[in-house]
């Protein structure tokens, strides 16, 4: 009897229900977040009908999120092109003809590095910018103020940003690809002793116009993901400055992770 009491008391002390509570709490939290995100996306789709509100604001956001991000996108792609050309030549030495450098630079920039590196850079610049801005507006009651003046805050704040990102990210990626290939080309001619004709021959070797379509589809999904996650995190910010910091970090981390997941997804769906 005493031993049984002792065991029960020991189990009570161990608090065996705790792991179930933790797992259950985590599952409930996940389902709740998913529900909240689904509602947000639903509101976003419904707000697309409010053209009078988001229409005049979208061009300004395209400039802010797109044109202003051009320097960072071009900076990245310029150096990526140089490194790609140099690493290709280092790998090919003696075994593969040097004109394959053109093929590798072009194909890799268009299919992978142009969209993914630009996407990752923009998840930091654009995603963080949106989450911090909307998060600050949320904690300082500016979003509530919009609502009290009969504005739909999703149509006013979210739709212009999401549309701007979805339109501008593919454009930025195209510019990045062009500059990345150009910098690889110039590097090949000046550092690797290749001729321009050799680089072009290599570039044409495996070129497929579908590559461009694939790149645009992929980068459009990146633009949508970065802006939707940034807006969602900003819109649901709680607390003060700390809350804004958490929302911003989450927006960047989640967008970066989603870019890599989407990268694999599109490769599986479109390249197999």
């Amino acid at each position: 009897m005493l031993a049984r009491r002792g065991v029960r008391s020991y189990l009570d002390r161990m608090n065996l229900s705790l792991p179930f509570a933790i797992v259950g709490g985590a599952i409930l939290g996940l389902l709740s977040s998913f529900g909240q995100f689904s509602r947000f996306v639903g509101d976003l789709i419904r707000a697309l009908t409010d053209v009078r509100t988001w229409g005049p604001l979208t061009v300004g956001q395209m400039r802010r999120l797109g044109v202003d991000s051009l320097p960072i996108a071009l900076f990245l792609s310029c150096f990526t092109g140089i490194v790609l050309a140099l690493q290709a030549s280092y790998t090919f030495t003696g075994a593969i003809p040097l004109y394959f450098v053109g093929a590798l630079v072009t194909k890799t920039m268009i299919l992978e590095l142009g969209p993914v590196l630009t996407g990752l850079a923009l998840s930091g610049r654009v995603g963080a910018n949106i989450a911090a801005e909307l998060g600050t507006m949320r904690v300082s009651e500016q979003i509530d103020a919009l609502e009290t003046m009969a504005y739909n805050p999703i149509a006013y704040l979210v739709v212009p940003r999401v549309l701007a990102g979805t339109i501008m990210v593919p454009l930025l990626v195209i510019f990045s690809n062009v500059l990345g290939i150009a910098s690889g080309w110039i590097t090949s001619m000046n550092v690797l002793d290749m001729t321009s004709a050799q680089f072009v021959r290599g570039s044409r070797l495996f070129y497929d116009s579908f590559d461009i379509v694939y790149c645009i589809i992929k980068s459009t999904s990146f633009g949508l993901t970065i802006t939707v996650l940034g807006c969602y995190q900003g819109f649901n910010t709680r607390g003060g400055a700390e809350g804004v910091g958490i929302a911003t970090t989450r927006a960047v981390v989640l967008a970066s992770m989603m870019i890599l997941v989407l990268d694999a997804f599109w490769a599986l769906v479109l390249l197999q």
């Binding site: 507006m137 300082s140 009651e141 500016q142 509530d144 103020a145 919009l146 609502e147 009290t148 003046m149 009969a150």
Partner: peptide, 15 residues
């Protein structure tokens, strides 16, 4: 809401 004016505690002006 257009018939209601709301004065926020910390103004909530669009900065």
């Amino acid at each position: 809401r257009l018939d209601m004016g709301y004065v926020f505690q910390f103004a909530a002006l669009f900065d």
